[in-house]
């Protein structure tokens, strides 16, 4: 029998220990520094983090705390210097460019603050793009793109260019694009950073829906109200995890009872 129950932070730990949930992300002693000719800036100073499959996690921290760098490392958009990173059970150490591309395409969906839609492609072409790199047939890609645009309520805007869409609509197109490959995890860097509060609310609703389907969602935000809508918040400070907290109001976990 499957039931959804509210659990406390300590109970969660207990469950974690006694009922191992699939680890989607496992970071051990992850370090990352940016080097110039004169200086070395250590951004991640040994991050240990585990995120289970199906979690809805926000990463918070002040500017320069390393939250975006952490998300980039998680999304294989940036390398890490040392430590171990396992994504969906596979090691992400020393990946070739091709392997990195493969994992990004198959496992990860991205959301960006500035949406990062290609300006010369229509909404449905933007959504279909990740499938192009999976060599999916053109007609099939277009069909699926429209399906996902319908999911985010933008089917009528399929033939529009990004410049013809509002910020909220663009972010929804970006989310449809992130979902079209049916990824295991969605990573979003300040997805509501460029949106007003009403539109932010709609976008967070979409992320909630995605998470409800069992997809792990990790987002970086500096807004408390956005973080509160996730189930777990990780607080970074100076490249280290300073806090890791479940939100009681929303902490729901699917477990087998």
């Amino acid at each position: 029998m499957k039931a959804k129950i509210g659990v406390s932070w300590s109970l969660l730990h207990l469950i974690n220990r006694n009922h191992p949930i699939d680890k989607m992300i496992s970071l051990k002693k992850i370090r990352k520094a940016y080097r110039t000719d004169f200086t070395t800036l250590e951004v991640l100073k040994g991050i240990d983090l585990e995120i289970a499959s199906g979690e809805f996690v926000s990463i918070m921290g002040s500017s320069g705390s390393g939250k975006s760098t952490l998300l980039n490392v998680l999304g294989l958009l940036d390398d890490f210097d040392s430590g171990a990173y396992h994504l969906n059970g596979e090691s992400m150490k020393n990946l070739s460019a091709k392997e990195g591309a493969h994992f990004r395409n198959r496992l990860i969906g991205f959301g960006f603050q500035s949406f990062n839609l290609l300006s010369f492609k229509t909404a449905d072409e933007n959504v279909a793009l990740p499938l192009y790199y999976q060599r999916v047939d053109r007609n099939e890609r277009q069909k699926k793109a429209r399906e996902y645009l319908e999911r985010v309520g933008l089917l009528d805007w399929a033939d529009h260019l990004p410049t013809q869409l509002s910020g909220g609509q663009q972010q929804r197109v970006a989310i449809a694009r992130a979902l079209i490959t049916q990824p295991k995890i969605i990573l979003a860097d300040e997805p509501t950073g460029a949106l007003d509060s009403k539109t932010s609310d709609e976008v967070m609703g979409l992320f909630q829906d995605v998470n409800d389907e069992g997809i792990t969602v990790v987002l970086v935000t500096h807004e408390n109200d956005i973080a509160e809508r996730t189930k777990r918040t990780i607080l970074l400070k100076d490249g280290l995890i300073e806090g890791d907290q479940m939100h009681m109001s929303t902490a729901k976990l699917s477990i087998n009872v």
Binding site: G75, L77, A97, K98, A101, H102, R104, N105, R106, F110, N116, L118, L129, P130, Y133, Q134, R177, T181
Partner: peptide, 16 residues
Amino acid sequence: TREIGVRKALGATPRD
């Protein structure tokens, strides 16, 4: 460059 970055994030390989 920016477009290339986006495409890479979406799974484009160097060969692409």
